[in-house]
């Protein structure tokens, strides 16, 4: 198992080329991303690890198309997204990326089914197909019986599973999980991590952003970030030996 097993096509799914993200804080210049280049291929399971303030959130935002870099190129699935407008980015996020957030980020007043349907609504999928696909996605995480529930009627682990169902529903090329276990206890964390692993084994590309080394080591490949720079990029075994 490892990076080597992933069949590396000519074109990576994620191709970050010399990415800079510079914030101006008064007179100070903060380089949240200081010349990062990174390639991630289809089918990989990568964790991006770093302490708070290391620039990993900036990485997450840029990889997730929530933000654009100050300079550098970002080719996602063959498309240059580094200079896209707000609405174009929204479309890319909708079609290409499935987000799993630390705080689940479910809409509290909508049922589980409605929550999972959301990305499909924005993709313009018709009502009937939408509901079928959302239901199938809920089934995948084992919550199809609870489709009528509201998020707060579920436990944290269940809510995180709903958000995974939501991430999966649009068949995205990339599942991007931002501290997916940050709000969960160790047992439910295990469940969620196992689930993400399973998704990867089914062929999905999974990227986890975390500050937690032990969680980072669940992935097959680890990228460590410090001060906006990549300080390690390699197989998880290599990383384990390194720590």
């Amino acid at each position: 198992m490892g990076v080597s097993e992933v069949r590396r096509e000519a074109q990576p799914l994620i191709d970050l080329r010399d990415i800079y993200k510079i914030y101006q804080m008064g007179d100070m210049e903060v380089r949240a991303s200081d010349g990062i280049s990174l390639k991630i291929w289809k089918g990989e399971f990568v964790s991006i690890v770093g302490k708070s303030g290391s620039g990993k959130s900036t990485m997450m935002n840029i990889i997730g198309c929530l933000d654009v870099p100050t300079s550098g190129e970002y080719i996602l699935d063959g498309e240059d997204v580094s200079e896209m407008e707000d609405d174009e980015l929204a479309e890319i996020r909708n079609k290409t990326i499935g987000f799993v957030f630390q705080q689940y980020n479910l809409l509290p007043r909508q049922t589980l089914l409605e929550n999972v349907e959301l990305p499909l609504i924005y993709a313009g999928v018709g009502r009937k197909e939408r509901q079928e696909r959302a239901m199938a996605s809920l089934e995948k995480v084992g919550l199809q019986d609870k489709w009528k529930y509201l998020p707060q009627q579920l436990s944290g682990g269940q809510q995180q599973r709903v958000s995974i169902a939501r991430a999966l529903v649009g068949n995205p090329s990339l599942i991007l999980a931002d501290e997916p276990t940050g709000a969960l206890d160790s047992r439910t964390s295990r469940d969620v991590l196992d689930f993400l692993k399973q998704l990867n084994e089914e062929g999905n590309t999974v990227v986890i952003i975390t500050h937690d080394t032990s969680i980072a080591m669940e992935a097959k490949r680890v990228v460590r970030i410090r001060d906006g720079k990549i300080t390690f990029d390699g197989d998880v075994k290599e990383y384990a030996a390194n720590v």
Partner: peptide, 8 residues
């Protein structure tokens, strides 16, 4: 949330 999921 809506925007991150692709709402224009």
């Amino acid at each position: 949330i809506r925007k991150s999921l692709g709402a224009k």
